[in-house]
């Protein structure tokens, strides 16, 4: 079976008078439908690895394969197109556009992709929000929702283009325990029920323990 994401000998070093190595010697394969938690102490390179896996950043050495496709050497626009169609991001902060309602926020990636008509986009936005228990909040602005609700809207937005891979960077960092558990339950469901690949960075070992696999990073290396 083709891996959903594969990091082969990946390293990322920030240039400068004193080069800083964020991650190095990363060999990681994540299978389709697998829920992986990346853990490690602060500064261990968890988020850096996630950004590399999500094609937001480019490795200085090694390569990243997304669903079997080598992404090395792709242009910025080509990487953006891959992210749009195949990857959904969820961040610690929800990053919803504050001027748009929940449904409009969810619709944005679909409108950018342009594969669905206006009616289908509206319907899918509402379905996604409903599936995350937010049906009655679809017209609300982000400021009118709680932190947990906003984060679920962000998850709905990440799912908008039906991506094969969901990447989450400390998605429960700003949430209370109950909301955090709900978010992780959602991720597990996305992986196990819908066959999506989920990679979540977290410092919460209890939540990480609910994942299929944990990848522990120390000083930029997988240990």
């Amino acid at each position: 079976m083709t891996a959903a994401i594969e990091a082969i000998g990946v390293a990322r070093t920030l240039p400068g008078p004193v080069p800083v190595t964020l991650v190095q010697d990363i060999d990681l394969t994540v299978r389709p439908g697998e829920f992986v938690a990346i853990t490690g102490p602060s500064g261990s390179g968890k988020s850096s690895l996630l950004y590399l896996l999500g094609l937001l950043d480019v490795p200085t050495r090694g390569s990243i394969r997304l669903q079997g496709r080598d992404t090395a050497g792709l242009s910025g626009d080509a990487l953006a197109d891959l992210r749009l169609a195949r990857i959904g991001f969820v961040f610690q902060f929800h990053f919803l556009l504050p001027e748009f309602s929940a449904a409009d926020n969810v619709a944005i990636p679909m409108r950018r992709l342009g594969e669905l008509g206006a009616g289908a986009i509206r319907q899918r936005s509402e379905d996604l929000l409903a599936s995350l228990g937010l049906a009655e909040h679809r017209r609300k602005l982000p400021e009118q929702m709680s932190g947990g609700q906003r984060q679920r809207v962000a998850i709905a937005r990440a799912l908008a283009n039906d991506p094969a891979v969901i990447l989450a960077d400390e998605p429960t960092g700003n949430l209370d325990t109950a909301s955090a558990q709900l978010v992780f339950d959602t991720f597990r469901s996305l992986a196990h029920d819908q066959g999506r690949t989920v990679v979540a960075v977290t410092h919460d070992h209890d939540l990480a323990a609910t994942a299929d696999r944990q990848v522990h990073l120390v000083d930029g290396r997988i240990v």
Binding site: A80, L82, I108, L113
Partner: peptide, 16 residues
Amino acid sequence: TRDIGILKSMGFREAD
């Protein structure tokens, strides 16, 4: 700035 970050992470190109 944050919105720009999220839009780009979503797959918006520089031209967008």
